[in-house]
Simulated scan of single mutants.
Amino acid sequence: MRPRLPMIALAGWLFADLLLAFSIVALGTQDPPPRPRATPTPAPTPSRLALERRYVQVSLNVDPDAAARGDESAVQAIRRAVRAQGPRLAGRRAGIVLTFGAQHSGGEGFANDVNRLLPRADGLLFGDVATRDFQLLGASGGAVLLNIYLFYDH
Rank of each mutant, 00 (worst) to 15 (best):
V62W: 04
R4E: 06
Q76M: 06
P87M: 06
R37M: 05
D113T: 03
A43K: 13
A50S: 12
S140T: 11
P44F: 04
R120Y: 13
L150T: 10
G109T: 00
L18T: 14
G91S: 09
T41S: 14
A43H: 04
I24R: 02
S47C: 04
G109N: 03
D128M: 05
L89W: 07
F100L: 11
G86W: 01
H104K: 04
S105Y: 02
P34V: 10
F22L: 15
P34Q: 12
F110R: 06
F15A: 15
P119Y: 09
R120A: 14
A121Y: 09
Y55R: 14
Q135A: 15
G141K: 06
G109L: 04
P46Y: 00
G28M: 06
P119N: 08
G91E: 00
L51P: 10
R120K: 15
Y55V: 09
A50P: 02
A81P: 11
V144C: 07
P46I: 03
G106Q: 10
L150C: 04
R116D: 11
L14W: 04
G127R: 14
G123W: 01
N147C: 10
A38P: 03
T131D: 09
T131S: 00
L118G: 01
F100P: 01
F22I: 04
R116L: 10
S23M: 14
F110A: 11
V75R: 10
R120L: 15
R120G: 05
V75T: 14
L150Q: 06
L10A: 01
I96G: 00
T29G: 09
W13F: 14
G70L: 08
V56P: 15
G106E: 08
P119D: 15
Q135M: 05
R48N: 12
L137I: 11
